[in-house]
């Protein structure tokens, strides 16, 4: 699908909220999936409680809400593979990369090798990343 009139901008989706407690996380993911059709240069950042969105083993049976965490695994199919997790936020919460879902994508330029989508970044790297963006959508 060709959208957006040929302009490519750098879009950053900033996720700072935990899932389930409010709908921000779920509806952010919906924007990311729809936005993928516009073929922009998309990055996702998970900061503060946003890192909880990527926690593995989410199970919502007991709260009667849809578990949307499996959908993050589909991001690779949507060519979204630049997922940045703020290292400070993760560590402050007693978590490490092993506690997060293993999100991957297939690299078309490397014989469809499966590669990790998540990068852990420190404050300086994250600040530098933010400074490269044209559009910052906050959730």
């Amino acid at each position: 699908m060709e959208e957006g009139g040929g302009v490519t901008k750098k879009f950053l989706y900033v996720n700072r909220k935990a899932p389930y407690g409010s709908i921000y996380a779920l509806e952010s993911l919906e924007v990311v999936l729809i936005g993928a059709a516009f073929e922009q240069d998309v990055s996702l950042a998970f900061i503060d409680d946003g890192v909880y969105q990527l926690k593995k083993n989410q199970s919502t049976d007991g709260i009667g809400m849809k578990n949307f965490s499996p959908t993050y695994n589909a991001l690779g199919d949507y060519d979204i593979n630049k997922i940045y997790v703020d290292k400070d936020s993760l560590e402050q919460r007693g978590l490490s990369l092993d506690d997060l879902m293993n999100l991957t994508y297939e690299d078309e330029n490397d014989n469809y090798a499966e590669k990790p989508s998540i990068s852990l970044v420190n404050s300086e790297e994250l600040a530098a990343l933010m400074e490269q963006q044209d559009v910052v959508l906050s959730f």
Partner: peptide
């Protein structure tokens, strides 16, 4: 919330 603290940590 820690919005201000995180903001100041990541502002250049």
């Amino acid at each position: 919330t820690n919005s201000l603290e995180t903001c100041l940590r990541l502002a250049r």
